[in-house]
Measured scan of single mutants.
Amino acid sequence: HSHMSHTQVIELERKFSHQKYLSAPERAHLAKNLKLTETQVKIWFQNRRYKTKRKQLSSEL
């Protein structure tokens, strides 16, 4: 499990705020920019979407 830097997370968050789903080319581009693997980016987005979904569910209770 590799640790992401604060800067990388900020960039991922910024991208996520604009779009929740990335196409393969977008993911490849973002990964390259942030010096991450595409898998890391993919998993981060999956986890981030899951967290957002959970938060929405709990706020509706």
Rank of each mutant, 00 (worst) to 15 (best):
S5C: 08
E38F: 04
Q56S: 15
R48V: 05
H3T: 07
V41P: 00
V9Y: 10
V9E: 11
A28C: 11
K15Y: 14
E60V: 04
F16G: 03
E11L: 09
R27C: 07
L34Y: 01
V41M: 02
I43G: 04
H6I: 13
F16P: 02
K42H: 09
L61W: 03
I43W: 06
K15D: 00
Q46E: 13
Q56L: 13
K20T: 05
S58K: 11
Q40K: 02
R49M: 04
F16D: 01
H1Q: 11
H18T: 13
H29T: 13
S17K: 12
P25E: 15
S2D: 08
L34T: 03
Q19N: 10
L34N: 01
Q46M: 08
L22A: 01
Y50K: 15
R14C: 13
T37D: 04
Q46F: 07
H3N: 11
K53Y: 07
L61T: 15
F45P: 01
K32P: 01
K35Y: 08
S2Y: 13
L30C: 06
R49I: 06
E26A: 06
L30Y: 00
L30T: 01
M4R: 02
S58Q: 12
E11G: 09
A24D: 06
T52E: 15
K53R: 12
K35D: 09
E26W: 01
L34E: 01
H1K: 12
P25V: 12
V41F: 03
K51S: 10
K55H: 06
L34D: 01
Y21R: 05
H6V: 10
V41H: 00
T52R: 09
I43S: 06
K42L: 11
Q46A: 13
M4F: 11
E60G: 13
K15E: 05
K32L: 13
L36H: 02
Q19C: 15
Y50S: 14
T37K: 02
F16W: 05
R54M: 10
K20H: 08
S2E: 09
K51P: 09
R49D: 02
I10P: 01
W44G: 00
W44N: 00
L34W: 00
N33C: 15
K53T: 07
S58F: 10
H3L: 09
H29P: 00
H18C: 14
F16E: 02
S17P: 03
T52Q: 14
E26Y: 02
L12S: 00
L22K: 00
H3W: 12
M4K: 02
E60C: 15
K53V: 08
H1M: 09
S5L: 05
N47P: 00
K32T: 07
L36R: 00
R48G: 04
K42P: 00
P25T: 14
F45H: 00
E13A: 04
F45Y: 03
L22V: 04
E60Q: 10
K51D: 10
T7I: 08
Y21M: 03
R49V: 03
L22R: 00
Q19F: 05
T37I: 02
Y21K: 04
Y50H: 11
K55R: 10
S5A: 04
E38C: 06
K55A: 12
R27T: 12
K55Y: 05
E60N: 10
F16M: 02
R48F: 04
Q8G: 02
L61Q: 10
A31Q: 00
L57S: 12
H3M: 10
W44P: 00
V41W: 02
Y50G: 11
L61H: 13
T39W: 14
Q19R: 10
Q19P: 03
F45L: 01
H18E: 15
T39Y: 10
S5R: 06
N47W: 15
K20C: 15
M4C: 10
S23Q: 03
L36Y: 03
E38I: 07
T39D: 12
T39P: 03
A31R: 00
H6D: 10
L34G: 01
K55F: 07
R54C: 15
Q8W: 05
K42V: 05
M4W: 05
K20V: 06
N33A: 15
L12V: 01
N47H: 13
L30D: 00
S2H: 12
R54L: 10
N33P: 00
R14T: 05
S23F: 02
R48E: 07
Q8M: 04
R14N: 06
V9K: 07
K53L: 09
H6L: 09
A24E: 08
